[in-house]
Each structure stands twice: as C-alpha cells, then as structure tokens.
Design a protein around this nucleic acid. Structure first.
Lengths: 148, 148
DNA sequence: TCTATATAGTTCGATATCAAACTAAATGGA
DNA sequence: TCCATTTAGTTTGATATCGAACTATATAGA
C-alpha cells in the first residue's frame, strides 16, 4: 500500500482487483436475490458434508464477523434456504441447517456459475492456476496466523 | 467455485480470503473515519501525479461502478479531503482534486499503514511475493479483457 | 438541423461488511 | 455457592458496493 514497498503493495492491489472482478462476475449470473456470500454458505454445507453448523463456526470458516453472519443467515432463513434452531446443548447457541430448497438452490447456482468458470478457463491456463494455488495458500495461512 | 473445478475454485477462494484479511487489517489502523476505499483515492492522485481526475476515470481505475464512486467522493468532499467542481470543458462532467488536507491525510495514512506492512514482511518472504506478482498480473489482465 | 445514441453523474433500494455496545448463557476459580 | 470472565448471538449505525432507473449533456448520422 505504500511507495516504500511497491512489491507488497502491488501484490495486495492485484488481489483486491481480481477479487472484485470475480465476485461481480459470479454475482451477475446467480439467481435473483442470491449473492456470493449466501451461495458460499449453502455450498459449505454440501462440500464439507455438514448437517448443522453454528453461526460462530460459519463466521470463522468464512473469516467474517458474527454480526455479518447473523445478517446473512437471517436472509437465508427468510428465503427458506436454511433453518436456524436453538442448540439443545448450549442455551446461547444456534444450529443452522440446509433445507431441501437450500440444496436445490445450491445446485442451480452451481449450474449457472459453470458459465463464468468456463469463461475463466478460456483465458486462464491451468498451469498459471496450479502455480498460484500453493503461493496463495501460503500467504493466506501466514496472514491468518498474524491475526492472533 | 464448483466441485467440478476445484483448482479454479480454490484459487479464487484463497484470493477472496486474503483480500478480506488484508483490507480489514489495513482499515483497523487508519484514522477514525477513513477507509481503504477513501485512502485509495487520495493515494491515487499522489502516486500518479494527477492534479484532477473525473469521477468516471476514478471509477474505472478502481474497477468500481460510477454510483460507488459518487458515494465515496461525496464523503471525501464532506471531510474536506477533495474538491469536486464542474468540468469547464464538458457540461456533464466533474473534476475531482486533492486538497492540502487530503494530502496530509494521505501522508498520515501511509505512516499508519507501515505497521501492518512491516508485519506482513515478517511472515511473507520477498521471494513468495515476487513469484506471485506476475502471475496475479496475468490473471487480472485476462479477467479484465473478459469483461468486454 | 434533428434525432438517436452514447456518456457523465445521481438517486434509490438492496446486500455485505465492520466496530461498538448490548443480552444471555456457560465456565472457572475463590 | 458466587462472582468474574468468556463465549454466542443480536442490535445499531456506519461505509462500500451493486443494479436499475433517472437527468443532463455530448456526439454522430441522416
């Protein structure tokens, strides 16, 4: 972010712009009312084969604050895509679960996202992506440690 | 974003999380009321040695929509960090310029940001960043072309 | 010249996000 | 047992962001 350190600045700058371009492109093809944040949550349950997750676990998984997760989950519940029930084992906690509508919505999103993903494939080589992955993983993990 | 293509999904996923971690870390050290979006605009004028820029040029430089730029510029103007005047050569246009307060604010932000940047240095090797930069630049440029 | 189209900017309504401050429940120690 | 601390979740108020729809000006073509 500073002229003192153009390399660090540029890397984070590129990351910011790429993130914006991709999330906008993905959002554009999602069904009316769906967002990438909401899709991410639906997808999370299926990918990791979780039946229930607490809002706090989800917030941690997506690196967002608990108020943010409260807000997004409320919208998903309102749309009938998840259920939110009290945790029987912890009076403070809640348990979030996918509904069948949530599963269907996740499937539909996947189908629609295949378009932009295919587009990305036409311009990005697997080779570039394969090189990027371990580097990004390293950066993400180290930045994550820094937060503590 | 899809299980059909774990590599593409993972790369964009890592990018999203890194972006979130860094922008939150940067925002935390900025002066009260300042944001990374606002700092980015102040910094843009100084880095590229521009006296004036139109809102449309700024929106394009930061890859955000014009309504977004309208909103952020209005806040900067309210804080006295930029001026916004009609473009004498184009009745539709406006010209944005830094004020001296804007310059000072940019300097202060730079100083405060040196902390997190230094922290990043302690955990990220120059080597990793040097490898990342050209790869990210390539991805960003190709995605950018895809938008047209 | 006139009209159609393109561009600059704004307004509106929505979602995502954060920090700060709050309530309620669990936990741990004296 | 009781109180202090921690943890889960929410509420509030703010900024950033988008798409859609709007106004005003510029430009190009007939």
């Amino acid at each position: 972010m500073t002229p003192n350190d153009p390399l660090t600045f540029e890397v984070f700058n590129e990351i910011g712009i790429i993130q914006q371009l991709t999330s906008t492109a993905f959002a554009a093809v999602l069904p009316k009312g769906m967002t990438t944040a909401q899709f991410g949550i639906l997808n999370h349950f299926v990918r990791l084969e979780h039946d229930t997750r607490s809002p706090a676990q989800l917030a941690s998984a997506f690196q967002v604050t608990r108020p943010t997760m409260t807000s997004t989950l409320a919208r998903l519940e309102k749309s009938g895509l998840v259920t939110i029930k009290p945790d029987p084992d912890d009076g403070r906690g809640k348990l979030v679960a996918l509904t069948s509508a949530g599963r269907k919505m996740r499937e539909e999103c996947l189908q629609r996202l295949s378009g932009p993903i295919a587009d990305a494939h036409t311009v990005l080589s697997q080779e570039t992506l394969a090189k990027l992955r371990p580097l990004l993983k390293e950066v993400r993990e180290r930045l994550d440690k820094l937060r503590d």
